[in-house]
Design a protein around this nucleic acid. Structure first.
Lengths: 368, 368
DNA sequence: CGCATTACCTAATGCGCATTAACGAGTAAT
DNA sequence: ATTACTCGTTAATGCGCATTAGGTAATGCG
């Protein structure tokens, strides 16, 4: 393995790619402090104190001073390559981040993420779904860019299962935001729709309602399924009939949910309606419209509830009974879980409780 | 530089950190394809075609096959280390980033930043003012953390001049969001308040107003100065008197701007009032309140305009005439400028045009 | 006073990839 | 046949950092 002693050429890197050469390396710090690069590494990583590796206070000070005066910052790529960590947490979003309607869900989440990340000593790397930067080509291995960070959060329903699976299989710390069973061993955090929905139904029952109807769309996402389950659980808990006629499922609520139909239900004894929350809020909109058109007074003659938050454009209307997804809390919890994963913790799923919202659309049922 | 031939120890890395060892390296691909690692790198990066470095089709195919069958994905950390750049753009905010009131200005900006960054092939690193991650201590050299990125955007008025100066002096690519003259050679992007303000005045003049008054706070930030200049320019352009009595400056508009004073101005012939925009919106609030209290009908008896966007809590009132800062555009422009800086471009300042907003608070002056 | 500690520090090495001088094999030109 | 190239591929090297076996004073012990 001896090197050729002869005067071979020296390939390697070109001297200086012109750009900025200002960023100081550990070597410069070492030179300035009059020590070796290894010592600089030891001091700056604090590994000396932690592992009982003795470094004299004088040397420490010299190194620290030199590093500070040079404005030294470790190169994250190098740290990472050297099998350490870089205090960077990735955030990869699959949803279109930009349309205005997402503003209301993505940002609050980010607030929580940022706060908790800061608390844990991490900075954030925002990976953009459409970005083609970095190594792999745009579409295919785009997800691999995240490996630069110590771990990564994934947002949005459309995370490609196979790529995620690969990451998980390689034991790269990943946390998905939103319940997800797909890749085995994937950690996730999600809102507890089941409990929150149950609570809404319980509140309605507590007000005296005996017949409650759920209006939901024709979608089998976990978010929908969970809400229905919670709804039915709530009915059962309150001793109310939870048959299949307690749920009205429609692929197009705007057309199927007519005023006539609402009147018919009311005639049958239904006094409260519950709508699931979706991206578009179609079920809720249809319900409101139908009730209005049927000439029914909302808190007076029928009670309404929404299993989630109202769409942004209806924010100025009186708040419906329902619950709010604690997005900042969700973000914070995701970060906590991710940090735990990075530290070697298990890949578990975590539910975060939603906040019940009494609202102004529910009251006692009308006297018979 | 000859290596010690003697049987020295071999320190280096521990054999295998247990965890993820499954990921194939270029070396494995090379072995499977029966070529060298260098060839794999050349083929996979496509650098052979680009730089005219010829690689036989046969070899290419062998390498590609091997890579595919092994599920090879490049390690971004290694790529970035070897390439001396990391395709990371920093975003450092000095304002409290996440408190609710900033929500409305920070996020739209970030939208533009992210979009343009993605387009340019960069990912984003969000540095948090309070985060203590990384090497340097928290408070003092916190700004140095940003050096981990290829360049950095700075938001907020309170960027410490000396630290910024240091970065600029080291030729670290920096772009400040908001006009700024402080550190010589600092690149910045800002909204063109001068033109936008002038446009508002011109619109008012076009409606027939001959006496227009600017209400501003007692602050000499560029943002305020620019607005005043644009205001005065607009008056001059329209052949209106632009004396010092066209501007009312107050350290505390809430107390100084009374209904009586407004009545007096109106009696003197003032038919339109313009308020500058500030963080708190104090001038605009005071103006609205005083006009209301004076019992003046807004579009009818006096016209009002705001040099900027109304504060978030007044978003539901009728939109005032004025202009909107195109925050996404500003963000995008900032990224473009930063990318140019990284590529070795000059440190220039750039203005982005604001969008005129007709609003509903201005009309023709009342007949005399 | 000689040898074993102890306290501090440094040399050497590799992580995975990109880069480039150089080399071997053809092929064309002299 | 020797030189002059072109083509295709490889060996060697380093990016910046972390890691660890030693080395070298300074100190302890009998």
């Amino acid at each position: 393995m001896a090197k050729e002693a002869a005067g071979r050429a020296r390939p390697g890197r070109a001297p200086a790619p012109a750009g900025r050469r200002a960023r100081p390396r550990q070597a410069e710090v070492a030179r300035l402090a009059g020590v070796s690069q290894a010592t600089v590494s030891l001091v700056l990583s604090g590994r000396d104190l932690a592992t009982g590796r003795p470094i004299s206070a004088e040397t420490r000070a010299k190194v620290l001073d030199a590093a500070h005066s040079l404005g030294y910052v470790p190169d994250p790529a190098a740290s990472r390559l050297a099998a350490a960590r870089n205090n960077l947490l990735g955030v990869f979003s699959f949803t279109a981040t930009f349309p205005t309607d997402v503003r209301h869900s993505y940002y609050p989440f980010l607030v929580g993420v940022e706060q908790e990340a800061a608390a844990q000593g991490y900075d954030l790397v925002l990976f953009t779904g459409s970005s083609t930067g970095g190594a792999g080509a745009g579409g295919a291995g785009a997800l691999n860019r995240v490996r630069l960070a110590d771990g990564c959060l994934f947002l949005g329903r459309h995370a490609p299962a196979d790529e995620l699976r690969r990451l998980v299989a390689d034991d790269f710390p990943v946390v998905h935001v939103g319940r997800r069973d797909e890749p085995e061993g994937l950690a996730w955090v999600g809102a507890d729709y089941v409990s929150a929905s149950r609570e809404v139904v319980t509140a309605l029952a507590g007000l005296g309602h005996r017949r409650v109807l759920l209006v939901r769309e024709d979608d089998d996402a976990p978010a929908s399924t969970d809400r229905e389950r919670g709804f039915l659980d709530g009915l059962v808990d309150s001793g109310l009939p939870a048959g299949s006629d307690a749920v009205f499922r429609s692929g197009d609520p705007r057309h199927d949910l007519t005023a006539d139909r609402v009147r018919a239900w009311v005639a049958e004894g239904v006094t409260a309606f519950v709508a699931e929350e979706t991206d578009t809020g179609a079920a809720w909109r249809a319900l409101r419209a139908a009730v209005d058109e049927a000439g029914l007074d909302c808190p007076g003659q029928v009670s309404l509830a929404l299993l989630g938050s109202p769409p942004a454009d209806l924010a100025d209307e009186p708040a419906p009974m329902g619950f709010d997804i604690p997005r900042p809390a969700l973000g914070a919890e995701a970060v906590r879980l991710l940090a735990a994963r990075i530290a070697g913790g298990p890949a578990e799923g975590t539910l975060v409780a939603c906040a019940f919202r009494p609202g102004a659309t529910a009251g006692p049922p009308p006297a018979p």
